[in-house]
Design a protein around this nucleic acid. Structure first.
Length: 271
DNA sequence: ACCGGAGCCTGTTAGC
DNA sequence: TGCTAACAGGCTCCGG
């Protein structure tokens, strides 16, 4: 579910409620949620630590703690984080719960159980191999071009590769390629400089719009407060199979690429 | 380097 | 209405 805009929305919503709060006891009902260290070590080490700041790298949430440790959460497909009162009735899908000294708790709800939490001394242990942040000043069209250079595979699976670029998932990959007017199967080494420039602009535009609209609620994604995002109303091709293209009226098609559903307009995005 | 397939999980939706 | 199969926003591992 959550891609960069959904994770960023989650970070921004949690920030005022978690910053300067202190973790107390932690509960876990699904052991595989705990990636590292062991639950006993995790719980003992986290207890008493204060959150100094909250950030994001790719699709990972980073809670920077006063000891220098970092609590890292990946929401994967169905993860959801919320801060609620301890009095809030239990939730059968809140498999990991972080107690806070102010009487509230941060609940990691995750129906499909793919999510993971990490507690490390250096975030680089977990996020160190990610590609660049697409919205950072350092990420320019020249950087994208240089990182595409020498590859020949289809452009869409490359966009989904977190080592190539951090944070783009299935929704924003399809939307970016539509805006750039590039067919998802186009081999990287056939892209012109102009096309790479369009793709660069499209990726940043679509991700920024996703943040501005606080994420896309298509399936289960909700903001931490349970409200829907608004980006689903601005999607041009994603999950619009069989419907007319807003720009030219041609029917949107769906193919499977790299094992993922891929949506595009065959007229606007010719092969 | 790249591709396809399986696996991790459970809920929802499409189709008969 | 009821059952079944397909499908889901992520990612890793394996063999070819």
């Amino acid at each position: 579910m959550p891609e960069l805009p959904e994770v960023e929305t989650t970070v921004r919503a949690l920030r005022p409620f978690i910053t300067n709060q202190t973790f107390t006891e932690m509960r876990n009902y699904w052991p595989r949620h705990i990636a590292t260290p062991s639950f006993d070590d995790f719980q003992a080490r986290l207890h008493g630590q204060e959150v100094e700041s909250v950030g994001r790298r790719g699709k990972y949430l980073l809670f920077n703690l006063d000891s220098g440790d970092v609590l890292i959460v990946h929401l994967k497909m169905t993860g959801h984080l919320a801060i609620v009162s301890q009095e809030t009735p239990p939730d059968k899908y809140a498999h990991t719960v972080f107690g806070l000294a102010n009487g509230q708790e941060m609940r990691f709800r995750d129906t499909r159980k793919f999510g993971r939490v990490y507690l490390v001394a250096d975030a680089e242990e977990i996020v160190g191999k990610l590609g660049p942040e697409p919205l950072s000043d350092a990420y320019t069209a020249a950087v994208m071009k240089e990182r595409i250079n020498g590859r020949w595979r289809a452009i869409k699976p490359l966009l989904l590769d977190q080592h190539f670029l951090a944070g783009v998932g299935n929704i924003y990959a399809d939307e970016s390629l539509f805006h750039a007017r590039i067919h998802p199967k186009r081999p990287c080494d056939t892209l012109s400089d102009d096309e790479i420039g369009r793709l660069y602009t499209a990726v940043r535009k679509v991700l920024q719009e996703g943040i501005d609209r606080e994420g896309a609620t298509i399936g289960t994604y909700r903001k931490p407060d349970g409200q829907r995002g608004d980006m689903q109303n601005a999607l041009r091709v994603f999950r619009r199979t069989g419907e007319p293209c807003y720009d030219c009226g041609t029917i949107i098609e769906r193919i499977v690429l790299g094992g993922r559903s891929t949506h595009f307009c065959p007229a606007c995005q010719p092969i």
